[in-house]
Design a binder for these strands. Structure first.
Lengths: 237, 237
DNA sequence: TCAAAAGTGTTCGCATTACACCCATGG
DNA sequence: CCATGGGTGTAATGCGAACACTTTTGA
């Protein structure tokens, strides 16, 4: 197995990296893996790895994420290409970064996997490579996208209360909203549908907090699709 | 000079391609080069080429654009990575696409260069590689970005009339605006400053059309920077 | 019964829209 | 003098922002 690959011109290697965000009901988190090998052994980095010849960068990102963290995510969005000449000490590596949003139910799955864990966004230590920079870019990006796409819903379970949704928006954007205005706006946007009165189902999960239990909603995907087609769409906050 | 480059794993080649938009006062145009070599010899494609080991993809894009079209553009924005396995018949090539906006004064410079020319956006013939697809993505992108960044101004000369600006927005978005409302909104946005009464200067350029001459404005960059910092910014249309 | 969270409506101001007439200029 | 395009104001409407009290629930 001493195969090698030869080219007439030098080729940079291509890697895909995944910035995966999650939400635990209070804080925004990001999924990081502890590196088990040099370079940056022991440091935290995003899940990621090198492109194979039979896959697109999107497929590569999804595969590496699955292999390294156990997370199965199809909705990976391109964040950008990072190509500083010396960003990897081994050889010239150009990284295509992706970002994704994990539903709360998936967060646990990630925890199972070897060295992957969730870190609160404002407590992330220094990362390997240029991943600090990539993380900043990803945060900027999600803050922008949340205005136009129902990005937020990807971070919650299938059913959620209005205040969970509000806390999510507040965590991502770093601001506070008026509860009444938030509710009004979300509802009149028409993307939420109320869940019938089977609240008991999730009572276990929700028994954590005191006070009155919130009404449950779910994201109405088909409504979203039809709005996207008419492109009359803006999630202003 | 029989140098070759050998790697332990296969490496895809990396290329950068530039989707450059221009505006002639009436139509949106895109800059295309006629390919002089196989594959797709004789077909139109974006300016672009392979990444060198001592440059970032941004530098690569700017260099290829300069070499192939004579255009000197610093403000290239990443559009996305296109990595279908068979998008290039020669070898596996992953393309990083950029888009840019050329000021009207620069359009002529482009015309000088060998095989580069401007094509009206709705008269673009079939392109080489997957460049048709990339063009569609670029259009979508510019239509989105124009709402948040003063993208449009990059397509006009330093001085322009309100109706030139309006025609540009209309050409990009494919809609019509009310003249009065457009003017009002643009002015109260505070990004334009009126040019002192030296209209004579450009009279040559502007003598083309009949009717009353429009007032000239210029884009107020420093105002834009300060607004961006406060991030109180939205160009709604 | 107390504390914590959820539910709900109204008012005010601003921004967007729709809409029509007069003015300047060049041919 | 006429055709083309430029400049301008107002009224109606809709949306976002601000704001407080009552209800439910679990401890």
């Amino acid at each position: 197995m001493e195969e090698t690959y030869t080219y007439k011109y030098p080729h940079a290697a291509i890697a895909a990296d995944c910035v995966v965000f999650g939400f635990d009901g209070h804080e925004l988190k990001v999924l990081l893996v502890t590196r088990g090998a040099e370079p940056f052994k022991g440091k935290l980095a995003f899940a990621g790895g090198f492109l194979r010849m039979d896959e697109t960068v999107e497929e590569c990102a999804a595969r590496e994420l699955r292999e390294e963290t156990g997370l199965e995510i199809n909705m990976l969005r391109q964040l950008g290409v990072f190509s500083d000449v010396n960003r990897d000490p081994r050889e010239r590596v150009v990284s295509v970064a992706f970002y994704a949003l994990a539903k709360r139910t998936e967060v646990k799955a990630g925890d199972d996997a070897a060295d992957a864990a969730w870190y609160a966004i404002d407590q992330v230590p220094q990362l390997a490579f240029d991943h600090d920079y990539i993380l900043r870019q990803a945060l900027q990006r999600i803050r922008r996208d949340i205005h136009f796409e129902p990005v937020g819903f990807g971070l919650l379970g299938n059913e959620f209360t209005m205040s969970e949704l509000q806390r999510l928006y507040e965590a991502i954007l770093g601001v506070k909203f008026d509860r009444r205005n938030f509710t009004k706006k979300m509802l009149q946007m028409g993307l939420l549908e109320e869940v019938g009165n089977e609240r008991q189902a999730n009572s276990a999960q929700r028994a954590i907090h005191r006070g009155r239990a919130g009404r449950l909603y779910r994201f109405n995907e088909s409504m979203y699709e039809s709005m996207k087609r008419k492109n009359a769409f803006r999630l202003e906050f």
